Lab assay of single mutants.
Amino acid sequence: GAYRMKIYDRDELRGQMSELTDDCISVQDRFHLTEIHSLNVLEGSWILYEMPNYRGRQYLLRPGEYRRFLDWGAPNAKVGSLRRVMD
């Protein structure tokens, strides 16, 4: 299947937008971000990790809009890595 997600540095799907279609071992290295404040999962399911290298707390992201970090259940906006959930 296809995988696509848009990430934003501000809440409510605002601010600088970056797009992912594959795994990202370090959000900071690739996008120069340490925080993601909202996101829109367009295709596929993903796991968001608090730390790089797929470590730390993890949150399942199904397709849909997440307008603030509380929407995916996190206590803050800190994001380290993102990985696709393969079928």
Rank of each mutant, 00 (worst) to 15 (best):
L13F: 12
P52F: 03
N40F: 12
P75E: 10
E43N: 10
F69Y: 12
V79E: 01
G44C: 02
A77F: 15
R57V: 04
R14V: 10
K78C: 11
I36T: 13
D11A: 04
L82G: 01
N76H: 04
E43A: 03
R30Y: 10
R57L: 06
G73V: 04
L48K: 00
R62P: 07
H37S: 11
I7P: 00
A77C: 04
W72E: 01
Y59M: 14
D71A: 03
C24S: 14
E50C: 03
D11I: 06
G80H: 02
S38F: 00
D11R: 08
A2T: 12
P63C: 04
Y3T: 15
D87A: 05
D29R: 07
L70S: 13
I36G: 10
S45E: 11
G44A: 02
W72P: 00
F31Y: 11
E12Y: 14
D71V: 05
R30V: 12
R67Q: 09
R57K: 10
E43I: 03
I25C: 13
E35N: 10
Q58M: 04
D22C: 08
Y54V: 01
P52S: 10
L61D: 00
E65I: 15
P75Y: 02
I25F: 09
L60C: 08
K78V: 05
W72N: 00
M5P: 03
L13H: 14
R10L: 12
Y8R: 01
G56Q: 00
Q16I: 09
S45K: 10
K78Q: 07
F69V: 13
P52K: 12
S38V: 01
F31D: 15
P52N: 05
T34I: 05
A77D: 08
R4L: 08
N76T: 04
R4K: 14
G56V: 00
S81M: 00
R62E: 14
Y54R: 01
A77K: 06
E43Q: 06
L39Y: 03
L60Y: 14
A2M: 13
Y66G: 02
R67P: 05
I47H: 11
P75M: 09
P63T: 07
T21Q: 13
R83F: 06
R62K: 12
Y66H: 14
L13W: 09
N53I: 03
D9Y: 15
D23C: 15
R57E: 13
I7E: 00
M17R: 10
R30G: 11
N53D: 12
G44L: 01
I25L: 10
Y59D: 02
F69E: 12
K6T: 12
V41D: 00
E50V: 01
N40P: 01
Q58E: 14
Q16C: 11
Q16S: 08
H32T: 10
M86R: 14
T21R: 11
A74K: 02
E50I: 01
Y3L: 15
Q28R: 07
N76W: 07
V41H: 01
D22E: 10
W72K: 00
Y3C: 05
K78T: 04
D9E: 11
L70N: 09
G80P: 00
V41F: 11
G56A: 01
D23N: 06
R4V: 05
V79M: 05
G15L: 03
D29G: 11
S18N: 10
L39D: 00
P52G: 04
L20Q: 14
Y8F: 05
W72M: 01
D23A: 05
L42I: 12
Q16K: 12
H32F: 08
M17N: 03
I47D: 13
A74H: 08
E43K: 08
T34P: 11
G73I: 03
G1Y: 15
G1H: 04
G64N: 12
G64C: 03
Y59W: 07
K6P: 00
E19I: 04
A2P: 05
R84H: 15
M86H: 14
G44I: 00
L61Q: 02
G80C: 13
F69D: 14
F31T: 12
R14C: 13
R55W: 04
D87R: 03
G80T: 00
D87S: 05
L39W: 02
R68V: 12
L82H: 01
D9T: 12
K78R: 08
N53E: 07
E35Q: 07
V85P: 03
R83I: 06
G1D: 08
E19T: 05
S26R: 13
N76R: 08
S38E: 01
R10I: 04
Y8H: 15
M5R: 00
I25V: 12
R55T: 10
W46L: 01
V85H: 05
M86Y: 11
R83G: 02
R83Q: 15
M86E: 11
I47C: 05
I7T: 13
I36V: 07
R10W: 12
V41N: 12
L60I: 12
S26G: 13
L82P: 01
E12I: 15
R57N: 07
R67L: 10
L13D: 05
R55P: 01
G15C: 09
D71G: 10
T34M: 05
L48M: 13
E35K: 10
E19A: 04
G73F: 15
Q58V: 03
P63V: 06
W72D: 00
E12H: 07
L33I: 06
C24P: 02
D22N: 07
Y8C: 14
I25G: 07
N76E: 08
E35D: 13
